[in-house]
Design a binder for these strands. Structure first.
Lengths: 308, 308
DNA sequence: TTTTTCAATAGGTATTACCGATAATGTTGA
DNA sequence: TCAACATTATCGGTAATACCTATTGAAAAA
C-alpha cells in the first residue's frame, strides 16, 4: 500500500528539485529519500524522475502524481489538525492572513479583544493581497483569510463579518473639501490617488469611478502612503472606515472625510477557510469576538460586489 | 506520520462495524488491526472508538476522521490507477454504470463497437438509478456513469454524448393512435404510464406533462414493463429513441410512436466521472466509439433540463 | 586535469507491522 | 445465575523495512 511518507518525499523533491535539500526538509538522510522514492517507483510501476538528465526533473507523470500527492499530504495534515482541535478547541497556532488595506486597522481595533477571548490561540499574522492570499489558503500555507467578499472559489468556505463603509478622503485644499456628501454618480471619472493594482480596494475604487487602469498616473503602495499624500496636498482617495477611524484617533488633522451616497458605498469583509478545515471553529470564534467590537452597519449601506 | 494503511483500517471498521470482518477485508489479522488502530488513536491523541459500549461504535470525532480517511484512501487508489493507466492507457477493468432506461438499449447498440475499439478494456456494467449512481461514483464504487445531464455535482466532470429524442408510445386502441404528432402543450395533464419514482425518465415525463406525483396511479418497474402494458392495451408512455429502435427491431407490432413537437423533446445523455479520475481517457474513448454509432441529432431537438 | 557537487550503493541497526495463541471481556440463552 | 458463545485485547516472537553512516560513482565546475 502507498505510504503518505513516501508521497511527501516526492512532493519535497518536486518542490526543492534537489535530493539533499528534500531529504533535509523531510528530516531524513539523502539515501533514505532516494531509496524510498525508488521503492515508490516500483510500487507504481512508473518512472517518476527523469533518468540520465543532469538536473533533477520529474517526468510528466511524476509531476502529476506529485500534485495529487501534495493534496493528500495536505489532507493528512488537516486531519491531524482536526484531531488536535477536537481535543482542545480554539488552541494552538493559527496562520491568519489579512489583506493590507485592512490588516493594521482591523488588528488595532480587534486584536486585544480577540486575545482576551481566545487566550489559547496563538495567531500568526500575515499580510497578503487577495490573489496571493487565495493561493496560500488553498495550498495550506495559511489557515484563515480575512478579505473582501464575495470570493467564488471552489473548496473554500466563507463567513461574512462586516459591511465596511467607504469614505472619500480629501485634503483641505481640494475643491470638494467643503462638500457634505458625494454621490456615486459624481465620482465617475474623478481623479483619485489609488493603491497599486492587485489591491482589491484599488480595483473596487476604479469600478466606482468607472476608470480604466491606464488613466491612473499615481499608485500608492499602502494606505498610509495615500494618507500622507492626501494629507499633504489636494488629492483625494477612497478610505475604508477602519482606516479613517484609525487616522482620526491618531490625530490626523488635514483630511476631510466625505460620505459617499446614492447609494452609500461599502465593501463586504469576511472570513475564508478551506471547506474541510479544522480551524472553522476558530473562524466562528473570531467572528464572534470581532463582530462585537466593530461598528454596527447602518441599514442603507450597500456592498459593491467586486468583479474578479 | 499518518499511514494510509492505518486509515484504511479505520474506514473498514467504520463500514463493517466489526473488528474481525474489518481485518478480513484488509487482509490482516484481527490483532493487527486492533493494534494499529490503537496506535492511530495515540498518534492523533483522540478516542476514535467508543469505549465500554457493547457494539463497535466510532466516536463523533472518529466518524468524521473515518470520512476524511475514506476520501484519502480513495485518492490513493486513484493515484495508483492513474499510474497504471499512464503505462498502458485504455486497458484494465472499468466499472461503468448506466441508468436503467438507457442501459440495455445503449449496450445493444454500442456494445460490440466499443469492444472492438477498446479490446484491452474489460467493462464491468452496472445498472443504477441516477441517485445511487451519483453516490457510488463519488464513493469510488464505480468509475464512470452514463446518465441524463446536466448533473451539477461538485468534483465530477461530464462529457455530453447525445441528445436522445423522446417519443410518445401509444397502443393501437389509444385515442391518439392516429395522430401524426403531439405538441408539448397537448401533453399537459395527459394520463401516461410512467416508471417508478427515482427514474429520471419518470421525473422528466412528469415535468413535460406538468403532473404532480400523486396523480400517477400506475408505475412500471422497467421500460420493458411499460412496453408490455402499452402494447397490450390503450395506454401511452414516453419512450426514449433507443428503446423505440430496439422494440421496433425486435418486432414489436402493437405500439405506435408519435413524435413530440413544439419543441421536439429530448434528453441529454452524457458521461460523468470524478474530476481527478484516471479513467477520463476511457470516457473520451467511449465517447468517440459510441458517438459514431448513435444517430445524428436533428437540429430542432431540444433538451428538457432536468430539475433535480 | 583536479576539485567539487550530488545522487547511488553498501552494510548494519532499530523499529514495527505482522502473526498465532491465548486471555479477558462482553453477550446470550437456558 | 451460570454456561456457551462471540468478540476484542494482550503477549511473545518473527520478518520486513525504514533508517542511518560511510563510501563509491558520476557528472559539473574550476
Amino acid at each position: 500500500m502507498l505510504s503518505l511518507k513516501d508521497l511527501s518525499y516526492l512532493v519535497a523533491l518536486d518542490e526543492l528539485g534537489h535530493f539533499g535539500k528534500a531529504a533535509q526538509a523531510c528530516y531524513v538522510s539523502q539515501p533514505t529519500l532516494s531509496g524510498q522514492l525508488k521503492k515508490l517507483q516500483n510500487q507504481l510501476g512508473v518512472e517518476l524522475i527523469e533518468k540520465g538528465s543532469k538536473k533533477v526533473i520529474l517526468t510528466h507523470v511524476g509531476r502529476e502524481i506529485a500534485q495529487r500527492a501534495k493534496a493528500m499530504v495536505l489532507q493528512a495534515h488537516e486531519l491531524e489538525a482536526f484531531a488536535r482541535a477536537s481535543n482542545k478547541p480554539l488552541t494552538g497556532r493559527l496562520k491568519l492572513a489579512i489583506i493590507p488595506s485592512l490588516a493594521p486597522y482591523l488588528m488595532a481595533k480587534t486584536g486585544a479583544c480577540v486575545n482576551a477571548l481566545l487566550p489559547g490561540l496563538t495567531i500568526e499574522l500575515h499580510e497578503l493581497e487577495t490573489h496571493e492570499l487565495l493561493r496560500q489558503l488553498k495550498s495550506g500555507e495559511i489557515d484563515i483569510g480575512i478579505l473582501v467578499l464575495p470570493q467564488p472559489q471552489a473548496g473554500l468556505r466563507h463567513l461574512s463579518l462586516w459591511q465596511e463603509p467607504l469614505w472619500l478622503g480629501v485634503g483641505h485644499e481640494h475643491p470638494w473639501a467643503k462638500k457634505t456628501q458625494v454621490t456615486r454618480g459624481q465620482l465617475a471619472g474623478a481623479e483619485l490617488i489609488l493603491l497599486k493594482e492587485g489591491h482589491c480596494l484599488a480595483d473596487q475604487a476604479q469600478q466606482m469611478c468607472q476608470l480604466k487602469s491606464q488613466s491612473q498616473a499615481f499608485r500608492g503602495a499602502s494606505l498610509e502612503t495615500l494618507r500622507y499624500m492626501v494629507s499633504a496636498g489636494n488629492g483625494a482617495t477612497i478610505v475604508p472606515q477602519l482606516s479613517m477611524d484609525a487616522w482620526i484617533s491618531h490625530g490626523e488633522q488635514n483630511i476631510t472625510y466625505i460620505p459617499i451616497t446614492s447609494p452609500k458605498q461599502a465593501r463586504e469583509i469576511g472570513f475564508l477557510a478551506r471547506s474541510g478545515s479544522a480551524y472553522w471553529p476558530c473562524v466562528e470564534a473570531l467572528h464572534g469576538a470581532m463582530a462585537k467590537v466593530l461598528p454596527k452597519n447602518s441599514a442603507d449601506t450597500q456592498t459593491v460586489p467586486l468583479v474578479i
